[in-house]
């Protein structure tokens, strides 16, 4: 790592004031620190969010489950509040990486980083969650903006994710056996007559929705309803782990499993 200034602000307001001249936010450090070690990132300053206790809260707030940005994957996976409010969601962080990663990595960090193989972006998009920042509230549909890119401003900090309740939700992923990143992960949410299907791990432009599957599942929320809906392989990633055609097939398989698992 190159040298940098380290700040540990006590409030979100103070943290925002420090975000200038190429400073980076440190949440769980599971991506930022390795990236800095590889010298792919060399921020002038690191602003550690670890001392801001309010960012760790997990609570049911009216008709929404609100998860603080600094809640770790292990905390969300083990949260009684999450289990009672949105049980399907707890399984998403519970299957990220390994115990070390889940004890450190955070929901805010995952969503802000928008890794194309990360699990949370699919859940956030399928559930129509709202990204709450230090400046505004952003609907999931407007938040993700391509590979490792979001609409977050330079001095904007995610403070929480707000998930509307009342949806049946399921997530299924085919994990890379070494990293546990999603080779393909599909999140499915049914709310009244609306169904949303979001895919991670596959798109060469990051997380995306599948309108044809959504329409079929809106008519009949069963695995059989999407048997004949084939995912389009164009625009999908091909790498040493899987080519685009294989990923397209996996989207269908994982979508069916997600529907089956929805609760």
């Amino acid at each position: 790592m190159y040298a940098f200034d380290y700040h540990r602000p006590a409030t979100v307001h103070d943290a925002q004031g420090l975000l200038k001249d190429g400073a980076k936010l440190l949440a769980g450090g599971q991506t930022l620190i390795p990236t800095m070690k590889q010298r792919l990132a060399s921020p002038s300053a690191v602003v550690d969010l670890g001392a801001i206790g309010e960012l760790r809260k997990i609570e049911q707030n009216g008709n929404a489950l609100v998860i603080g940005a600094m809640a770790t994957h292990a905390e969300v996976a083990g949260s009684k509040t999450v289990m009672s409010a949105l049980p399907g969601l707890a399984g998403v962080p519970g299957a990220i990486g390994d115990p070390h990663v889940r004890n450190s990595g955070t929901i805010g960090g995952s969503v802000a980083n928008n890794d194309p193989a990360a699990d949370y972006p699919a859940a956030v998009l399928a559930l129509g969650a709202t990204v709450i920042t230090s400046k505004r509230q952003i609907a999931a549909d407007n938040f993700f903006d391509g590979l490792f890119t979001t609409v977050l401003g330079e001095d904007e900090i995610i403070t929480a994710l707000s998930f509307p309740l009342g949806a049946k939700f399921g997530y299924a992923k085919f994990a890379n056996p070494a990293s546990r990143y999603a080779l393909v992960g599909v999140a499915v949410a049914q709310r009244g007559s609306e169904v949303r299907v979001a895919v991670t791990g596959a798109g060469s432009n990051g997380v995306f929705r599948v309108p044809a599957m959504e329409a079929a599942l809106a008519k009949s929320f069963t695995p059989a309803a999407i048997t004949s809906v084939k995912a389009d392989a164009s625009g999908l990633m091909s790498d040493i782990h899987a080519d685009a055609a294989y990923r397209a097939n996996l989207i269908g398989v994982m979508a069916k499993r997600a529907v089956e698992a929805a609760a």
Binding site: G29, I33, N103
Partner: peptide, 8 residues
Amino acid sequence: LVCSCLVL
């Protein structure tokens, strides 16, 4: 339980 190589 964490990896101390990823903690400052």
